[in-house]
Write a protein that binds this DNA or RNA. Structure first.
Lengths: 225, 225
DNA sequence: TCATTAGTTCTACTCTGCGCAATTCATTTC
DNA sequence: GAAATGAATTGCGCAGAGTAGAACTAATGA
């Protein structure tokens, strides 16, 4: 089978990818530079994206992402049947542990924070929903790596105690513990994690949190199908 | 100038549009039927969308929207610099009026609920963020129509008292009042609205809410450069 | 005023993307 | 366990969509 793709579509999508937290609006030339496409080409592709509401141009002709993305994004999130139950489950975890609870899903070879309930504590691990992090580090990263990349070290860890932990991996002051959400058929959905400052989440607190995370992840998985 | 567009890109985007609240997952054939494209064509376009995380296929080969949409959607929402202030402003409106407060933006020729804070009251106007409604009706609809479609009746109304109201238009039991958010340069962003059951939001309560909505919308507009 | 940079429009050539048929794969039915 | 039904993938040749690149125009500002 010849590996199939539609070039112009991928070019168009790469235009969207050019936007980021740091670059919320871009000029035509910036997009061209970022994507390596010709300006004329970007212009035409962008016209179509704009037509469908994926891009919009503000008064000074700069490009921004468009509302269609938010609409479909919201739809995506709801298409997770677990959506309804994830948020309350995370809130319960926050209550139980006092730390921040998150739910991550794989996005390409990275991980995406789909839901997040922050700790009430002013000193906390703060991160926004929609943020994308690597799969190479962090407790949730390991869990995803086990399922998506087949990381065997992580797999072994999950086999052993149902969760992965990280202490100061991604960020030297953060500790976390994460467990996979899997339904009855073995289908993998994502990872639940609890994270907080390392000096508060010491070995003992981490163990307590671990139990909570594992049981939350399990019951989420069972609530599916 | 020849009206410019890239056909295959628009076809790809129309695949994404085929998904909806009711149709959160689709088979190849369903997509083909929905969009009017050939199955082979959909298959190739979808391959590229999938590659970039805009679609994914679950184990039984059905298509679903992908995580990239949520990521970019979240980015879009944050690219509104007012994002930070909208949510608290809406919450304050809920406290002041006891009813549900929302923020709508134009999305093509419709309106999109970008932020929503629900009334604490069990009997309330409930709607999800990401929902798309017509611009033809509802208080917020009128406000958007005034700016985007140039609806002159609505314009006159805004001229006169800075807001639009609706009583039982879109839904026979709902009343609402909405006002536009405009920055110092006259740039239009969207509409703030308060809505609730008509028997609670009587003429008097609506007038009170009106004042709150107008002033909230104004201060949001001013918080922008 | 001229220089610079950003964006748009035009055109000719190439190779992508398309329609459609044929094939494979998966289910269901008898 | 064949046969039949339906869904998805693959192959192929042609048309014309999409691209590169240049030329042109508009905006900025020294």
């Amino acid at each position: 089978m010849k590996e199939y793709r539609v070039e112009s579509v991928e070019k168009a999508l790469s235009i969207l990818e050019a936007f980021s937290k740091e670059q919320k609006s871009l000029t035509l030339t910036e997009i061209a530079a970022e994507t390596g496409l010709y300006k004329s080409n970007v212009s035409r592709l962008a016209a179509s994206l704009e037509r469908y509401g994926y891009l919009k141009r503000d008064p000074n002709r700069r490009f921004r992402l468009g509302p269609a993305l938010w609409r479909l994004g919201a739809l995506y999130r709801r298409s997770f049947e677990l959506g309804e139950s994830v948020r309350p489950a995370l809130r319960q975890l926050v209550r139980d542990t006092g730390e921040t609870a998150s739910f991550y899903v794989p996005d390409q070879d990275e991980r995406l924070c789909l839901y997040r309930e922050n700790s009430p504590d002013p000193v906390r691990h703060h991160l926004e929903e929609g943020a994308r992090l690597t799969m190479q580090s962090g407790a949730a990263g390991h869990v995803l790596a086990a399922f998506v990349l087949g990381d065997s070290a992580a797999k072994a860890r999950l086999e052993k105690d149902g969760s992965c932990i990280s202490q100061g991996e991604r960020n030297p002051h953060i500790a976390a513990v994460a467990a996979p959400v899997i339904d009855a058929t073995g289908q993998f959905y994502g990872a639940v994690s609890v994270s907080g400052p390392q000096d508060r989440l010491d070995t003992y607190a981490l163990a307590r949190a671990q139990a909570a995370v594992v049981s939350t992840a399990q019951s989420l998985g069972q609530s599916l199908s």
